[in-house]
Amino acid sequence: MSESKKVSLPVLGEVDRRTAVKAGAATLGLAAWAAAIKPWFEWTAELNTDEFLQKHYRELSPEQLQAILNRLTDDARKETGKAVTVKDHKPLPGVSFAYALNLSICIGCRKCAEACHVENNHDRPSHQSYIRVFEMQKGGIDFEKGDATYSHPVPAKDKYYMPVQCQQCENPPCVTACPIEATWQESDGIVVVDYYWCIGCRYCEAACPYHARRFNWEKPQVPAAEVNPNQSYLSNRVRPQGVMEKCTFCLHRTREGRLPACLEACPTGARVFGNVLDPDSEIRWVLENKRVFVLKEELGTKPRFYYFFDK
């Protein structure tokens, strides 16, 4: 700019003044811009560089993963004052999970949804849960006549109840949708999310036909005293703001051989869970002996979550 000033001295009164005014305006503009985006820096101040640069879960070396688990454990302990452990549960070899639900004996008590809420460190104010229980009109399987917000003694006359959670599809539309492979299907059939890789575009949420995915619209609020200390990297650790989450069949339990929290909470035993590759398993017996069906079969998603009626 200074060069142009020198070169063009003769006419310069006007141009010089204009340049000065422009420079002033540009400075003011920059200052205003800095002020406008200040909240962004208030937010980034809370982030840490390791987390920002962290690689995709499946590309981490065992040492890197261990370091991350240690960091998460330390942070969670500091924050809650509880003996939290954040582990990484790998899929078990020779295991392929499936779930079945007996609609004839489900009474719609929502104990499963509540257990999920507690087990998976869900946001408290929104009553978040991976399970939504629909009160359905007998005479069809029509969600248009369903209602998830019922609040009266159950089971009500002429109604039946249909809990819906992630169907852990064999052909998951959410995984196809994700532009960055932040969600994928593991060898035991569980579809997981890397909470440190997800960018929060919510295309998976649009793609899911079962309303199974949830977004962290803000940082989940879980009082320290209520935090479930048995956590896993891909499942129930307290999620960051702005990322997707979903039912993981409680992989932090089921990959230790335990039953999912929703099943244990079910007072009627409507839920059956197990390894379909084991011919003696309860789930195999149900699939072979009950007339099971899946939701929205016509979409070709091949759910691992089955429903059946006894009578």
Binding site: T44, L47, F52, H56, T176, A177, C178, P179, I180, E181, A182, W197, C198, I199, G200, C201, R202, Y203, F215, N216, P240, Q241, G242, V243
Partner: peptide, 24 residues
């Protein structure tokens, strides 16, 4: 985007670009 700070995950090679599967 919920996490614009992770925009770099979308950059091919250094991120993880789910092409050609994802329409996005």
């Amino acid at each position: 985007l919920g996490r614009p700070d992770r925009f770099w995950h979308l950059i091919p090679v250094i991120g993880k670009f789910n092409w050609p599967v994802s329409m996005l």
